[in-house]
Amino acid sequence: MTLSAAPRISCEVLETRADVARIFNIQRYSLNDGRGIRTVVFFKGCPHRCPWCANPESLSPHIHTVRRESKCLHCAPCLRDANECPSGAFENIGRDVTLDALVQEVMKDDVFFRASGGGVTLSGGEVLMQAPFAARFLARLRQLGVHTAMETAGDAPLSRLLPVANQCDEVLFDLKIMDARQAKLVLNLNLPRVLANFRHLAASGICVIPRIPLIPGYTLSQENLQRVLAFLQPTGVTVLHLLPFHAYGEPKYRLLGRDWAMKGIPAPSADEVGALRQRAEQAGFQVTVGG
Rank of each mutant, 00 (worst) to 15 (best):
T2F: 15
R8N: 10
R8E: 15
S10A: 15
E12Y: 13
V13H: 14
L14V: 14
E15G: 06
A18E: 15
A21S: 14
N25K: 13
I26P: 05
R28H: 01
Y29S: 03
S30R: 05
S30V: 11
D33L: 05
D33E: 13
G34S: 07
R35G: 08
G36P: 00
G36D: 01
G36Q: 03
I37P: 03
V40L: 04
F42I: 06
F43D: 03
P47A: 11
C50A: 06
P51T: 06
C53R: 04
C53Y: 01
C53D: 00
R67E: 03
R68E: 10
R68I: 11
K71Q: 15
K71I: 14
C72K: 03
C72W: 02
H74E: 13
A76M: 05
P77I: 05
C78M: 00
C78V: 03
L79W: 07
L79I: 00
R80L: 05
N83Q: 15
S87E: 13
G88Y: 13
A89H: 09
E91R: 09
N92W: 11
N92Q: 15
N92I: 12
N92A: 15
N92M: 13
G94F: 00
D96T: 08
T98Q: 00
A101W: 06
V106I: 08
K108Y: 15
D110P: 04
F112E: 03
A115D: 01
G118M: 02
T121S: 09
G125I: 00
G125S: 06
V127L: 13
L128Q: 08
Q130G: 05
A131D: 10
A131W: 07
F133E: 06
A135C: 12
R136G: 09
F137I: 11
L138A: 10
R140T: 12
R140Q: 15
R140P: 08
L141Q: 03
R142H: 06
R142F: 09
G145Y: 04
M150R: 14
T152V: 11
T152Q: 12
T152E: 12
D155Q: 07
D155G: 07
L158E: 08
P163F: 09
E170M: 11
E170L: 12
E170W: 04
E170T: 11
V171K: 07
F173R: 11
F173P: 06
L175T: 13
L175H: 12
K176S: 14
I177P: 02
I177Y: 04
Q182E: 09
N190A: 11
P192F: 08
F198G: 02
L201M: 12
V208R: 00
I212P: 02
P216M: 12
G217V: 03
S221R: 04
N224V: 10
V228L: 03
L229G: 02
A230E: 13
Q233A: 15
P244N: 09
H246D: 08
R254D: 14
R254W: 10
R254N: 10
L256W: 01
L256N: 00
L256M: 08
L256V: 02
K263Q: 12
K263V: 10
G264H: 02
P266I: 08
A267S: 09
A267L: 06
S269L: 14
E272M: 11
R277Q: 10
R279Q: 15
A280V: 09
Q282W: 15
G284Q: 14
Q286E: 15
